[in-house]
Design a protein around this nucleic acid. Structure first.
Length: 214
DNA sequence: TTGTGTTTTACGACCTCC
DNA sequence: GGAGGTCGTAAAACACAA
């Protein structure tokens, strides 16, 4: 049979072939099935239109050869013009209506496969986004905790400075070890304490307002 | 052998395009 | 209005585990 004639068009569906692991996967169960059937019936290769197995004449399985040719034709062009339908039917010994139905069902199978693949792809993307979101939320929590600790430290130092200034000559807190350092030592203390609070790998720059030391 | 799940074939209803 | 498309579904054909 002249395939050029049979397939009518020179159009080759690149995306279809690119994703053709799918097509092979699709054809595998059928091949298995047909192999077994061929073993049972003594060869399933057909002169088209013959009943295979002698069942209900209304619903007969296509032979391997017919299915293969239709598949090749489908890969060339998914739509079926009248001329090609009639030609295919004649070549394969099928009713043109059967060819039309086969193409309809094949398009449906292809669409459902495509949707399934798209769903899987989107699901993976979604899962990755969820994971990323979790990481970001953890990071936010960590930063909030660091901010809270730093604010506490600032508050503590501010109170210390207040009591220090109120005492004037240091009389009130003179005996307190905490009130014995100067502004310079506050800064040292802040730096030291901040380092403790923020951790060694800290990249968060803390800015203590000047008024704090006034 | 049989029960069950999957795939394939066929059809009707409805829609779109020429 | 007719031809051909999609969509949903029935039923036959089939694979396979128990």
């Amino acid at each position: 049979m002249d395939n050029q004639q049979l397939f009518g068009s020179s159009y080759v569906d690149a995306p279809f072939f690119a994703a053709n692991g799918t097509a092979q996967r699709e054809s595998q169960p059928k091949a298995r099935r047909r192999r077994r059937k061929a073993a049972r019936c003594g060869g399933g290769d057909g002169n088209g239109g013959e009943m295979d197995g002698g069942g209900d004449p209304k619903k007969r399985r296509l032979t391997d050869e017919q299915a293969e040719m239709l598949e090749l034709s489908f890969r060339e062009e998914r739509k079926l013009e009248t001329g090609r339908k009639v030609y295919l039917a004649a070549e394969l010994g099928l009713d043109p209506k059967q060819v039309a139905v086969w193409f309809q069902n094949r398009r449906a199978r292809h669409k459902s496969k495509t949707l399934e693949q798209e769903f899987t792809r989107l699901k993976h993307a979604h899962d990755a986004d969820i994971l990323h979101k979790c990481h970001l939320q953890n990071e936010v929590l960590r930063l909030k905790e660091r901010l809270r600790a730093t604010e506490e430290e600032v508050q503590r130092l501010r109170s210390a400075a207040g009591s220090h200034g109120a005492s004037g000559d240091g009389g009130v807190c003179g005996g307190s070890p905490g009130s014995s350092f100067s502004t310079g030592t506050w800064q040292q203390h802040l730096g030291f304490s901040g380092a403790n609070e923020l951790g060694t790998d800290d990249d968060l720059m803390m800015c203590v307002p000047d008024c704090f030391f006034a």
